[in-house]
């Protein structure tokens, strides 16, 4: 699967409270959650983000609470993929479980700017920055997680398993 979009840049330790503040956790509707996504750190984000755009961040993205509303809000915003130097553990699981593609890539951040055009090949794990012409490789998912993603998320995966 190939994803294309413009980058939105964020720093280290982007926590789930800034991805979607607790005061908005009275709904599970992705479109509703998307309206307030990233608002405490970048109030203009929800107005600027375009379908397919890609979030790029530093270390420990998604730290903090277990709220799955965080990856749902990001996905609901139209973001096609999150690339970070590293992800917090619960966010990592949640993103895979709801089918939000995420990639860990360490060296990408230093050479990237907001608004760069990226092309991400999920099956190969490669990232092409079309603005600078440089390509990067990311860590591929373990086979087991690829099965969950291929099934269309954890719920579909479990459904298949229970049917057997």
């Amino acid at each position: 699967m190939i994803l294309r979009g413009k980058t939105h840049m964020f720093g280290d330790n982007i926590d789930t409270d800034v991805i979607i503040p607790a005061r908005y956790l009275t709904t599970i509707d992705p479109e509703e959650l998307a309206k307030n996504c990233m608002e405490d750190i970048d109030p203009t984000f929800s107005g600027r983000v375009q379908q397919g755009d890609i979030m790029v961040a530093g270390y420990n993205f998604g730290c903090g609470s277990s709220r799955e509303h965080a990856p749902i809000a990001i996905k609901g915003s139209g973001v096609s993929c999150v690339i970070a130097r590293s992800f917090a553990r619960i966010f990592y699981r949640n993103a895979i479980n709801i089918g939000l593609p995420i990639l860990e890539c360490d060296d990408i951040l230093d050479e990237m700017h907001a608004g760069d055009e990226l092309e991400v090949d999920l099956s190969k794990g490669t990232i092409l920055n079309k603005t600078t012409g440089r390509t990067y490789a990311s860590e591929p998912f373990p086979e087991f997680m690829r099965q969950i993603i291929a099934a269309g998320g954890e719920i579909a995966y479990i459904k298949n398993k229970l049917r057997k």
């Binding site: 277990s66 619960i90 699981r93 949640n94 479980n97 709801i98 229970l162």
Partner: peptide, 14 residues
């Protein structure tokens, strides 16, 4: 350990 809602659903079912 903490997990998300989908994992909770999977846990409750299986």
């Amino acid at each position: 350990t903490g997990i998300g809602s989908t994992d909770m659903a999977a846990g409750m079912a299986t």
